[in-house]
């Protein structure tokens, strides 16, 4: 029996729509659930007060600071390093044994479970380098964890810039560096930023790595050498040890809002940047 093309079309459309709807639906449900359970416990004092009695009382100010610092350190290290590596791979080397090996390594690293990076950071940064449990150790370990993602997305973004841009720029007498900075990077920035945003997200939500390398101090860190906990870690501890369900939900709600804010800002910035360049 043959199915009429129109029928196949309708079935395919229906299936795809269902798939999309369930994905979006699940997301909305989870986010909604957490926000509904948590937001009503969030108040100004919850955001600005210290963590008291292991989290039973007080707020999550130290965890907010810890999160922001940790993300700043990890992305501050991983973004420049990752983008530089991607530029090297995509623009400065010819495809060969070496680049294939590097790329293979990066892909392997991208698949390594985060706890391994935690262990690695604990051994290298905390112990061998003597940085102790600190924001710096945590940030460095998180940087190692997100680096493969940043490199991969940035390299892909660079490679998707048409070769003709490079040819034209080179034919006008631009040096390799000028070609890259003036005629390739600007067009790859949206893709590169997407990778960086993914990295930010993974740093924010990570718990295993942070517990291993930054500890879980409840004090507000005043420098990168202090131990600190992130919101994700705080949430994890509150929930796992049954300290306070209310505060766990509230922390989760703040965490989700933070991620939403960062993503929205980043994408708005990106669009403004693109439009700005077009018009300029």
């Amino acid at each position: 029996m043959r199915i009429a093309p129109r029928t196949t079309q309708a079935i395919a459309k229906g299936l795809l729509l269902t798939a999309t709807a369930s994905a979006v639906g699940a997301l909305v449900f989870v986010v909604g659930f957490v926000l509904a359970g948590g937001l009503r416990h969030v108040s100004w004092s919850f955001l600005t007060e210290p963590i008291l009695d292991m989290g039973r009382a007080g707020g999550i100010f130290p965890a907010i600071v810890g999160t922001l610092l940790m993300v700043l350190v990890s992305v501050g290290i991983a973004a420049p390093l990752g983008i530089a590596s991607a530029i090297y791979l995509a623009e400065y080397t010819r495809e060969g044994r070496l680049t294939q090996t590097i790329r293979f390594g990066i892909n392997c690293l991208a698949g390594v479970p985060s706890i391994i990076f935690g262990l690695f950071g604990f051994i290298l940064f905390v112990n061998i380098l003597g940085l102790g449990w600190s924001v710096l150790s945590g940030g460095l370990s998180l940087a190692a964890m997100i680096l493969p993602t940043v490199i991969r997305t940035a390299e892909e973004a660079l490679r998707s810039v048409p070769t003709s841009y490079r040819d034209v720029a080179a034919s006008l007498g631009a040096t390799r560096w000028q070609v890259v900075t003036k005629s390739v990077l600007p067009y790859a920035i949206p893709g590169i930023l997407t990778g960086v945003i993914l990295g930010i997200g993974r740093s924010i939500e990570e718990t295993a790595v942070v517990i291993f390398t930054a500890g879980s101090a409840v004090q507000t860190p005043t420098s990168v050498f202090d131990s600190a906990r992130t919101m994700a870690v705080h949430f994890y501890i509150l929930a796992r040890e049954g300290i306070s369900n209310e505060n766990a939900y509230a922390t989760a709600a703040v965490l989700i809002c933070t991620i939403l804010i960062i993503n929205t800002t980043a994408y708005t910035l990106m669009h403004r940047l693109m439009r700005g360049r077009r018009a300029a």
Binding site: L172, G173, Q178, K182, R278, A280
Partner: peptide, 15 residues
């Protein structure tokens, strides 16, 4: 380049 007319012509001199 996907830039303005001006920026296209000015590209080389700027470089």
């Amino acid at each position: 380049f996907p830039l303005s007319v001006y920026d296209n012509v000015a590209h080389g001199p700027r470089v």
